[in-house]
Design a protein around this nucleic acid. Sequence first.
DNA 1: CTATGATCATGA
DNA 2: TCATGATCATAG
Length: 231
Amino acid sequence: MNDDNSQLSGVNKIFPPKSQAELLTRCQVLVGKTLGQVAAEQNIFVPENLQRHKGWVGNLLEIALGANAGNKAQPDFVDLAIEMKTLPLNAQGQPKESTYVCTVSMKQSGELCWQDSWVKHKLAHVLWVPVEADVTIPLAERYIGQAWLWKPSLEQDAILQRDWEDLMDRIVLGEQAEITAKEGDYLQIRPKAANGKVLSTGVSESGLHEKINPKGFYLRTSFTKQLLEQG
DNA sequence: CTATGATCATGA
DNA sequence: TCATGATCATAG
């Protein structure tokens, strides 16, 4: 997505994995490699830093693993119904940032329920790929860790559902503009836009449309830290 | 603008 | 110090 990588690589990768096992095998090959090595294999240019290339790592790994994604509103591995997410690690080997899940629905939510929600579907089956993200390590020298597949446990799903329902209730009440990132145990809602001037259509309590800053669902780092310890 | 991929940067 | 709020790039 970022950068002008006009060349496609020769190695494997353009092909999506045919099975879960094949996907994990590809992940295994990446373990212990640096981003620079993988980028070289794909003939992808490594930027100096991520300041203006925030999605670079995720994009690189999608290519390396053969995600048949593009920019579709689909799981990264469509046939396997698996979503890939990188997990940036700090110098202590713990998650450094929260994880973006999806945009908060800007529609009159009506009777949308958890089982049918975007968040539920996105998190149904996730391939987490830990990657060093300490800013003192040059981007090309950061190592890729052991990826693992995750499905929410009953307990995790219950808490995610509760968070989601609490937040959605407020959105239905027309309070989306008032929601802050402090709410939610596992899920939180934060701004998600190119900048603060971007506005989208929200709905107020009376059903009136109003322009608000777009927001998105994120998984707190405290939650992904648990996943890392369990995975 | 909304979707994809996230990290940056500042206030508390 | 670190979470919240803000921001960056690209495709359709």
